[in-house]
């Protein structure tokens, strides 16, 4: 049982990490508490659902849905936040505008598509479980694990090894200085939105596939855990998000498996509070950043 529980924990952790990747990037670089992130997640899943119903195979639906969610993210960022950036509005008004935005977007999506849960066509990914000893893993779960690993590697390569990554990191450190150094911060912001949107969309498809439940509010339900992961991992820290996600998944599963399932949810937040009380900028965060 312990082996299976550990696998359960790692898989849940991969789900959390997958959700958090784009979130931490957006949060860390653009320095805005952007509540629309969960919407890109839902949008990706719903786009993939629509394509799969038209007969598209998963290897086509997944990247297309991710790109689609990325475009949604760029448009929303432009509509909601460009004006506020230009007039250098207080940072909390960005939070407020995305709050109004998600309320409108989720409600519009719900009244358009209906609030029901939908499922992807059952034969999209083989449903059989693989046995390794007494441990069982499904194809969708392996897909999540693989995709998370791949995306983390790709993101790290982008951030560390390209000029673009350098520009994004410069922007995360000091936006004003970055602009003076000739970085087009407007374009970089759009790009970061696009990448985060793609990551969210891909996450939505894979997680929707794994739990087989796609509905307009699915992103909203992940937001709170997402916050825990990116804060514990350190804002903008991709490796931190991965580690914090995995740790959270394993701890939650172990708590439910060996202590009490009533504590499963509380334990995430107890850890969060305990981490922050001892390390005020997250477990893997570097310095206290003064940001509202």
């Amino acid at each position: 049982m312990l082996a299976q529980q550990l696998v359960n924990g790692v898989l849940l952790g991969a789900v959390y990490a997958l959700f958090a990747l784009g979130f931490t990037l957006m949060f860390g670089v653009l320095r805005v508490i952007n509540l629309t992130y969960g919407f890109y997640f839902s949008a990706g899943a719903l786009l993939a659902l629509w394509m799969a119903r038209q007969g598209a195979p998963i290897w086509l639906a997944l990247p297309l849905a991710a790109l689609g969610a990325g475009c949604v993210a760029v448009v929303l960022d432009w509509v909601l936040l460009t004006r506020l950036r230009r007039i250098q509005a207080p940072e909390l008004s960005s939070l407020m505008v995305t709050l109004g935005g998600v309320l409108a977007l989720y409600s519009a999506l719900t009244s358009w598509l209906g609030p029901d849960i939908r499922r992807l066509p059952p034969d999209l990914v083989a449903a059989d479980a693989f046995h390794i000893g007494e441990v069982r893993v499904t194809a969708a779960q392996l897909l999540i694990l693989g995709a998370t690993t791949l995306l983390v590697a790709a993101l790290l390569a982008l951030m560390r090894g390209t000029r673009l990554g350098l520009a994004i990191r410069a922007m995360a450190e000091k936006p004003d200085a970055a602009q003076l150094m000739g970085i087009d911060t407007g374009r970089a912001a759009a790009l970061v939105s696009f990448i985060s949107g793609c990551l969210a969309g891909a996450g939505g498809v894979l997680i929707g596939l794994n739990f087989n439940a796609i509905h307009p509010y699915m992103g909203e339900a992940m937001m709170l855990r997402g916050f825990v992961v990116i804060i514990v991992g350190g804002l903008g820290d991709i490796r931190g998000a991965l580690l914090a996600g995995l740790a959270l998944g394993v701890i939650e599963v172990m708590t439910a498996g060996y202590v009490s399932s009533g504590l499963k949810e509380a334990v995430a937040f107890l850890i969060l509070v305990a981490v922050l009380w001892t390390r005020p900028s997250g477990l893997f965060g570097r310095a206290v950043l003064r940001r509202a």
Binding site: E265, L272, W277, R290
Partner: peptide, 22 residues
Amino acid sequence: TLRLAGVYLAIATIGLGEVLRA
């Protein structure tokens, strides 16, 4: 808690609320 700043403070206080809810 008051040693925390910005979003860290925000999320910590939200976390405390969720613990109480549990």
